[in-house]
């Protein structure tokens, strides 16, 4: 492989999108109201669509003639490089929305910065996806405020979701030698600058929603290195079922 660091980097973005898209898809037919059922599956569709473009590019970099389906469906758990946040269970509606909000608040400035990348395929995916992500963030921010500043019950559920998910947010900014290599080559943005923007969005929306940022800074990571939480295996057994049971099947 010619550019192993870039391959790894593209897989991370693709895997974050695919796994979160798969999680959101679990709401299909189970949403609290029809509009939200549709909204969550629409967002899932955008994320999975973005992952297809990214897997195509990753396959091209890998150069072994694989296609996007093979990368999405035929890897082992430790070969997925998504962060732990996106694989956390849907929980109640508050948990799903808060997970999505923390992710969207990161993805928007991340894609905005990635649009400047000299790697044409990354810049193109970012320019396409940034428009979709704006709608996602708008939608989740409004829900965070509606729940936080809503009834006692909705406020308490939103706050519990934040308290639970906060430990996974630090990993959005995880960097290792992959990032160092690509940042030195000027190909990808530094995540420290994006963290500032993320924190500003999160602080503004949570304060509008009368919700608190936890003071406990206990944090988890490992996803970027392929070490996942106990939930990942269950996701993959659903996601990969058809390809494992009926290899190379198509419809």
């Amino acid at each position: 492989m010619q550019q192993p660091a870039l391959f790894e980097y593209v897989l991370r973005i693709a895997d974050d999108s695919l796994i979160l898209g798969q999680r959101l898809g679990e709401w299909c037919g189970h949403g609290p109201i029809l509009e939200e059922d549709i909204a969550m599956t629409n967002i899932a569709l955008d994320l999975i669509g973005q992952s297809i473009s990214l897997y195509d590019f990753a396959a091209e970099l890998e150069g072994t003639g694989k296609n996007h389906d093979q990368l999405a469906y035929l890897r082992y758990e430790n070969e997925y490089k998504n962060i732990l946040l996106v694989e956390q269970p849907n929980g109640d509606f508050a948990m799903t929305i808060l997970r999505q909000f923390f992710f969207d608040a990161f993805r928007l400035p991340f894609y905005e910065a990635l649009m400047q990348s000299p790697v044409a395929q990354l810049a193109a995916v970012a320019a396409k996806s940034v428009k979709e992500t704006r709608y996602h963030l708008k939608h989740t921010s409004e829900w965070v405020i509606r729940m936080g500043d809503g009834t006692d019950e909705s406020h308490q559920r939103a706050q519990s979701a934040i308290d639970h998910l906060w430990r996974y947010t630090n990993e959005l900014f995880y960097e290792n030698e992959v990032d160092q290599t690509l940042q030195a080559e000027g190909k990808v943005p530094a995540l420290s600058a994006i963290r500032t923007q993320w924190l500003s969005t999160v602080t503004n929306v949570l304060s509008e929603a009368t919700l608190q940022i936890p003071t406990n800074d206990w944090k988890f990571d490992g996803g970027r290195e392929g070490r996942h939480s106990e939930h990942m295996g269950y996701i993959l057994s659903d996601l990969q079922y058809m390809q494992r049971a009926y290899p190379n099947m198509e419809w």
Partner: peptide, 9 residues
């Protein structure tokens, strides 16, 4: 507006 997301993306 009823919902930001409709029958298609």
């Amino acid at each position: 507006m009823v919902s930001l997301f409709g029958s298609t993306a």
